[in-house]
Design a protein around this nucleic acid. Sequence first.
DNA 1: CGTATGTCAGCTGTACTGACATGT
DNA 2: CACATGTCAGTACAGCTGACATAC
Lengths: 148, 148
Amino acid sequence: MSEAHALSPSAVRAAQEVRSVIGRLRRRIRAAGGDGDLSYAQASVLARLTGGEGQTTSDLAAAEGMRHQSMAATVSSLADAGLVERRPDPADGRRRVIALTVEGRRQAEESRQARGEWLAAQLQSKCTEDERQTVIAAMSVLERLVHE
Amino acid sequence: MSEAHALSPSAVRAAQEVRSVIGRLRRRIRAAGGDGDLSYAQASVLARLTGGEGQTTSDLAAAEGMRHQSMAATVSSLADAGLVERRPDPADGRRRVIALTVEGRRQAEESRQARGEWLAAQLQSKCTEDERQTVIAAMSVLERLVHE
DNA sequence: CGTATGTCAGCTGTACTGACATGT
DNA sequence: CACATGTCAGTACAGCTGACATAC
């Protein structure tokens, strides 16, 4: 029974806090989205595409740490909504490069504005600059953990 | 319109980081769970019950910031698995108090141990004590935001 | 051939809304 | 009566696995 788990109290506590907060944060962010808004997954992909467009479904899936089949579903919904296009890659017949449409770019921009950004507004109005820096630092730490 | 208070760069950046990280973190934590393991929502409820047992479905829903119908589904699954019991409240015929069974208590304990705690292990092995404190501090900030 | 990419189908888990019964 | 609590039904979304075709 490998007795050697020896986790420090801070590790256990941090893990509990993170788990607890993630759930509520996610529900809150989602609830903050209006009716015609993008879903959580859609907004993530759109945001990622604005940061570089030569990506395929598999690339996006790897970046988000999920299966390519799961990402394909999200990309399909964006394509159905006319926000992205799948373009054949002349150099590799298997690949279909995802590109933002004009409307997709507009939505991505709008989504980055105050409208959908409930969280940013909260961080602005209820936190000090120091607290925001703490959050940014913590996210960087957590990112390193998931990145493995 | 009317979004007159300009958001500070740190608020926008923190919001983006948080959104990006919680998605991947959630998938990672879930994937770290083995086959017979508790689901994310089940584990949350079980953990919460170990911190006080006189709660109803509605109490738990309020604590997690979700609808009571949603929480009822999770509680039902735990009841089906024999980990909790719903007991009638003699003082109020509407209420059904949720209590851990012996097996439920065992599982909650086991879940808190190293086995299911992928995140705690990561925080232990890949972070400094200072970094863990940063994470804890950030979670406390975020918790204040969702708590509203 | 093996591997990478993409698509389709089916499943689970999470959480929502609406409608309704019942108890205070 | 209104209000709280709980249950049931239907829906949407996110993500998984397996199976398969195609292209490198």
